[in-house]
């Protein structure tokens, strides 16, 4: 009796290819790094709380970058913070994802012109998978961002490398 024969008789066995099993597991247990930078963090907390309930998507906060899969950059990335964010990103184990939440981390937001102290978009420092617009985005928007990320993860292959290595550039 091969395993294929059991497919329709034994309800505890599902036959699926490795790639979609991995993607299914990854996209349904997105643990995010528990840190916030500004007012977007308040919306992020609201999304995690009982009314919007991140947990129903398997999204829970982790206090260590080494145990988390996704980083939500929730707020203004100052020049001082940017190097810390980069270090946090480097400490995460792969596969790792980044959600840029709100106008500030997307493009500098209200600081885009005269904010000497603000990095004009976190994508200048780390690669971003999903951008969530808004100032700050509502919890529904952040949830939508996570659903987009889940879609992205379900299309991944295990053969191709996800992120090209970041290269330092001399200026």
């Amino acid at each position: 009796m091969g395993i294929l024969d059991k497919k329709y008789h034994d309800s505890t066995i599902i036959i699926v290819n490795l790639q979609s099993a991995l993607n299914w597991a990854r996209k349904n247990s997105l643990w995010y790094e528990q840190f916030g930078l500004a007012c977007c963090a308040i919306e992020m907390m609201a999304t995690a709380a009982s009314k919007y309930d991140f947990d129903r998507f398997g999204i829970i906060p982790r206090s260590s970058p080494r145990q988390s899969d996704v980083m939500i950059v929730a707020g203004t990335v100052t020049m001082k913070m940017a190097s810390r964010i980069k270090r946090l990103y480097e400490q995460m184990s792969e596969p790792r994802y980044v959600i840029s939440m709100g106008s500030c981390s997307n493009c500098g937001g209200p600081y885009w012109e005269h904010g000497y102290h603000v990095l004009k978009g976190v994508d200048k420092v780390i690669p971003v998978d999903v951008y969530v617009p808004g100032c700050p985005p509502r919890p529904e928007a952040l949830l939508e961002g996570f659903i987009k990320l889940q879609e992205k993860i379900s299309g991944e292959t295990i053969i191709k490398e996800k992120n090209p290595e970041l290269k330092a550039e001399k200026v």
Binding site: M79, S83, C107, E113, L119, K120
Partner: peptide, 13 residues
């Protein structure tokens, strides 16, 4: 006048 780069990160857009 803000510096153009801080620790090789651009300060402008």
């Amino acid at each position: 006048k803000p510096q153009e780069y801080y620790q090789s990160m651009p300060t402008g857009t």
